[in-house]
Design a protein around this nucleic acid. Structure first.
Lengths: 337, 337
DNA sequence: CTGTTAGCGCATTCAA
DNA sequence: TTGAATGCGCTAACAG
């Protein structure tokens, strides 16, 4: 590719003034057809492309802020549920949302590098991921506020739930339903929330309870982990899953093995994703849409008033009993915190 | 709010030079603490916010294009499935993706107004929605390319499927499974694809086949429509749904009425959303991720080479037989087109 | 450590 | 219809 051309280059090339170039650029009708053709030709020949920043500066257009949302967006519909209110909230605050689908650690760094190098965002929303203290310092130096969803970071406003308590809640629910031997299906260990739920589970099921960690979060992985769990201990009659998708896989595997749910084995998930009601999965519901709402409000506030701090918030978890667990004496929804 | 301030304003206010202001703005360490405080104070008092365009112009940073994706993003996970590859594809092409969640007609106009007024995007991706010819002309005058997903528009490259054929395919599948009396659950009439599927259905089920149109696309609406359908004609033994979510609702309603699926009533959906395999729903699969891939490639190409046209493309539909339909003599996946 | 000066690329007067 | 000159708000040398 050629080096960036300017209207001067193409004006010279076409033998006209820059004003004329600008005119054809903006589709002004006050340009002779002859001239227009010459200019258009020159633009094509030089592979010219207008500089956005210059245009906006010149036109004095509004200076709408942009926030970059970094999330492993498409790994689970969890983020979908968060993005919806996030997008709406930001839109209402007249802020543009730039989606950054983070699929790997390098992805994340690439996006962040860009943001600081080009100052291409006035705010950053982190979904389920952290940033190093150096990076944080850099962003704060540049005055780019950051808020986090589901990933507590020192000095960064965060919205989260008590995952430790949530894991315990799930385990206790199955125990209340009569489960004697609990197993746990975890997720990738790097995910802090997953680890906390696991710890919570342990706190009630004991340290010797069998645990399987799925490498990825999908029904297939959940099925595989379930098989491993049963192999490890055939007497298991309660499976706590770190996430709904995994739980769905557990259900599939159990059906395949002709184990009745919840009679033989109870299953509980985490999140309460869309369609889980249809599937009848008992789960611990996360307030996903509130996550998005909060993030939108928080980042908008930080951008509007950099000087006033916004406080982190911990939201409540709700146990949603459905068909995959036994309800001892009419268990109802139970609010935690 | 106050009128936009510049660094000159705050420089004057703080009694320093603009360079110093710029320095504190960028977190340069070469500023006396005393001076810095004065500048920061002035900035706060005047509610100063830097002009992004000017910064970028001055720094000569890369001129990354942005494309605005206008979709009813969060109404169905259908768009989620499309956005994923769209985001990845654009990211690979070094293009920013700005999400525009269009919830209403006015929303759409607002976003488009902005784009033309502020030239805030170098490309537009339309998801399941059209634009008027005047708007189209305006965009083309400004040299902002547009591509469309699932909504054929004259003069605009579009990726789509043959919905007419798809509707017929679904109906024929149920007939092949032995259905004698077919009913149809449609969606909002304004949606062209929905209407086409309905027409396709009609072409095989006949004009007198009962049809219910759900006002919104959700399991609840599907259940309601199913009830109405059965009320209209209790002998119905095959339900073709314009969309999977509606089909899920149909399944629920049928279960509630103790009608066996597929023995008493067969059900087929459209899309093949995530988890439909788990639910065992027979459906007509749309190549959603290919939609996103195509859109990313198409808009990137248009932006890179405005002079070369890109052709519309029609993708294939696949029938996915599962547990909610009867397979006469081992029906296999059938590719169309 | 701080101020002065000169562009960045473009839209837009104002004359011609 | 066209061109020359001016400024958008900011960063980055360059002096002091």
């Amino acid at each position: 590719m050629s080096a960036p051309q300017t209207i001067y280059d193409i004006a010279t090339r076409a033998g006209v003034g820059i004003a004329t170039v600008s005119r054809v650029l903006n589709g002004s009708s006050k340009v002779g057809p002859q001239t227009r053709r010459r200019v258009e030709l020159a633009m094509r020949e030089l592979d010219y492309r207008p500089n956005r920043a210059a245009r906006r500066l010149a036109t004095g257009g509004p200076n709408r802020p942009r926030v970059a949302a970094l999330m492993p967006f498409f790994s689970a519909s969890f983020y979908y549920a968060i993005s919806r209110p996030l997008a709406s909230g930001l839109s209402a605050a007249d802020i543009d949302l730039v989606l950054c689908n983070v699929a790997s650690r390098t992805d994340k760094q690439r996006f962040l590098d860009r943001i600081v190098a080009e100052r291409s965002a006035e705010g950053v929303v982190l979904g389920s991921m952290g940033i190093g203290p150096d990076r944080h310092a850099e962003l704060r130096r540049l005055g780019i506020p950051v808020v986090s969803i589901e990933f507590p970071l020192p000095g960064i406003p965060t919205v989260s739930v008590d995952n430790l308590k949530g894991g315990a809640l799930a385990a206790r629910h199955l125990v209340a339903g009569g489960a004697k031997r609990l197993g746990f299906i975890g997720g990738p260990v790097l995910a802090i929330p997953f680890r906390l739920r696991e710890d919570g589970f342990r706190s009630v099921a004991g340290d010797d309870a069998p645990i399987e960690r799925a490498a990825e979060v999908s029904p297939a992985a959940g099925a595989k982990a379930t098989a491993a769990l049963i192999q490890a201990d055939p007497t298991i009659d309660g499976v706590v899953c770190v996430n709904d998708l995994l739980a769905v896989g557990a259900l599939e595997e159990l059906a395949r093995r002709k184990r009745r749910v919840p009679e033989d084995v109870q299953v509980i998930g985490f999140d309460d994703l869309p369609l889980m009601d249809v599937l009848g999965l008992t789960t611990v519901r996360q307030p996903m849409s509130e996550f998005g709402d909060w993030a939108a409000r928080a980042i908008a506030a930080r951008i509007a008033q950099p000087s006033v701090a916004v406080a982190s918030q911990e939201l409540g978890l709700t146990l949603i009993p459905r068909r995959t667990s036994r309800t001892a004496a009419k268990t109802r929804k139970r609010q935690v915190r």
